[in-house]
Design a protein around this nucleic acid. Sequence first.
RNA 1: AGUGCGGGUUGGCUUAUCGCGGCUGAGCAAUCAGAUGAGGAAAGUCCGGGCAGCACAGAGCACUCUACUUCCUAACGGGAAGGCGGACGACUGGCGACGGUCGUUCGACAGCCAGGGCAACAGAAAAUAUACCGCCAGAUUUUUUAAUGGCGAAUGAGUGACUGAUAGAAUGAGUGAAUACCGUCCGGUAAACCUGUUUUGGGCCAGCUAUUCACUCAUUCUAUCAGUCACUCAUUCACUCAUUAAGUUCUGGUAAGGGCGAACCGGUGGGGUAAGAGCCCACCGCCCAGUGGGUGACCAGUGGGGCACGGUAACCCUUAGAGGCUGAAAGACCAAAUAAGCGUCGGAUGUGGGGCUGCUCGUCCCCGUUUUGGAGCCAUCCAAAUGCCGACGCGGGUAGGUCGAAGGAGGUGGUUGGUGACGACCAUCCUAGAUAAAUGAUAAGCCAUGCUGACCGGCAAUUUUUGUCGGUUGGCAGGACAGAACCCGGCUUAUAGACUCGUAUUGGAC
RNA 2: UGCCCGAUCGUCUAAGGGUAGGACGACAGAUUUUGGUUCUGUUUGUGGAGGUUCGAAUCCUUCUCGGGCAA
Length: 123
Amino acid sequence: MQQTFTKSERLCSKKVLGELFKKGSAAVRTFYLFPFRVLYIPHTEASSSGLPAIVITVPKRTFKRAVDRNLIRRRVREAYRLNKSAFHSDSSHPAYIAFLYTAKQIISFEEIEKGMKLALKKM
RNA sequence: AGUGCGGGUUGGCUUAUCGCGGCUGAGCAAUCAGAUGAGGAAAGUCCGGGCAGCACAGAGCACUCUACUUCCUAACGGGAAGGCGGACGACUGGCGACGGUCGUUCGACAGCCAGGGCAACAGAAAAUAUACCGCCAGAUUUUUUAAUGGCGAAUGAGUGACUGAUAGAAUGAGUGAAUACCGUCCGGUAAACCUGUUUUGGGCCAGCUAUUCACUCAUUCUAUCAGUCACUCAUUCACUCAUUAAGUUCUGGUAAGGGCGAACCGGUGGGGUAAGAGCCCACCGCCCAGUGGGUGACCAGUGGGGCACGGUAACCCUUAGAGGCUGAAAGACCAAAUAAGCGUCGGAUGUGGGGCUGCUCGUCCCCGUUUUGGAGCCAUCCAAAUGCCGACGCGGGUAGGUCGAAGGAGGUGGUUGGUGACGACCAUCCUAGAUAAAUGAUAAGCCAUGCUGACCGGCAAUUUUUGUCGGUUGGCAGGACAGAACCCGGCUUAUAGACUCGUAUUGGAC
RNA sequence: UGCCCGAUCGUCUAAGGGUAGGACGACAGAUUUUGGUUCUGUUUGUGGAGGUUCGAAUCCUUCUCGGGCAA
């Protein structure tokens, strides 16, 4: 499988984002796994087939510097890109995923990758 | 040489794998290939401009901002050069107040003799003033003190000293007398005794010694009396004086000095004065008016005034200048969908409406006073309708794409003008462009640097050894501040290491 | 991204450039058998730096932090 990360895998629709972050929505599943809180919507027939679209958020409240936020976002994205092949084996993967970074400090790429693997397996 | 502080320049390199953004090429497409992809601050959003839409005949007020001068610039609250002022250091002139030169550094650096306001506490007084202490002059002394000068008398008492008289005592001197032995006394005697001569005499005489008595004189002491002087006390009478100084009180002068304060009605030196004072003089400062130099800020110098005109404008304000408002989520275009619908209610349909933003103005400008029917020549009137505006309710939908937007007040190099900021000309280059937002992850090596070990060499103290410097090499660690979002010019703030400049300090050598 | 406000005791909130005040709280004392109530007293503060001024919470600049608006 290709380890690419194209535009179609990035969640840009404001509508979907609003649905994903709306409180109390029945379609949204959520769980917490260090260092993420993961929100996702399962795959339905209406949504387009293919790989899920993801969004990564790093809170500005904990990381004041844009440089730090960029670094964490890039590391998370790399971890997802290198490990998303776990979804390819079975077709029952979510359609939209949101990764909320909740750790209070910058952690290394190895830790992020370990957390990402566990999160993908749980989904 | 090291370290600290401040300013400036710079702001690690290479490779591999897997990825990302837009671009170019190939391909129907999937996809593949290629080159390319953060900064000096991209940050803060503190100024200015480009660009865009909206509005616009004009004027004034209001509001906001700027503020030494000249220049640079598209513009600026930015920059350059200059002026002036402050601080510090060095040298230096003057009695002094106060200056001069050089260096470093800082300055929101227009105007409080246009006006208004403000100044706590302290202080006598805080702005056309005043007089607390003080200084000086005069008066006052009812009352106080000191000094100097003037100025007394009488009586009494006490004490002391001196003089005189008298008396007594003691001592001394002189004169005279008596006594010495015996004796109970009256009285008697000259033996003894002494001396001399010579054998007889003389004498108890004189002298000497002792004692006693009397008299005289001298000295001393004591007592009494008298007189004189001094002191003290008491009483009575008289003067309760003059001058000076201090003090009290009053009147006036003064602002030199003290004291208060952040600041108090110019400063220094001299003259002058009862004491003082721009009261007078010289200088310093200030104000006014000419002169010369400079584009100008300003500078130099002349004459006059005669000391008010204190501070504060990052208080109001004045003067001069600038500013229309809103910001790329501006705005333009394309596509799709829906709508430009429906209902109810209200308003106006006219000497009116509009002319940006907050207000005002009208001698200015623009627009408008519709249609139908009726009355009527027109103006005008009546009725209806359309249309307009507003409110409420119902109904329906979007949050996509392209441009704006990456060739520009652009970079580099050269020549050239200018003290400089900067400009002109020529050559050459194209160098991120996303839109929930790319520039990353992993691995390896090199390099600056730090720690540590080994070897070699130099230097210092020395036997090994220690310290330090340099080189080679091994291991470990390891690169700050920070991420474009329409663009640009500035400002501000952050910044490891390296280089460099200034400055302070420490150590070493000469 | 663009724009606008604000920061004062532990908390809330005042203060014309001139001693930073009040309420609640905390602490101590009094009253009460004790606690509560009540009374009295004390404590504690102008976000950081620089400037203007004789003097700054206040005025100016800058930094930091917090909040809000525009979809």
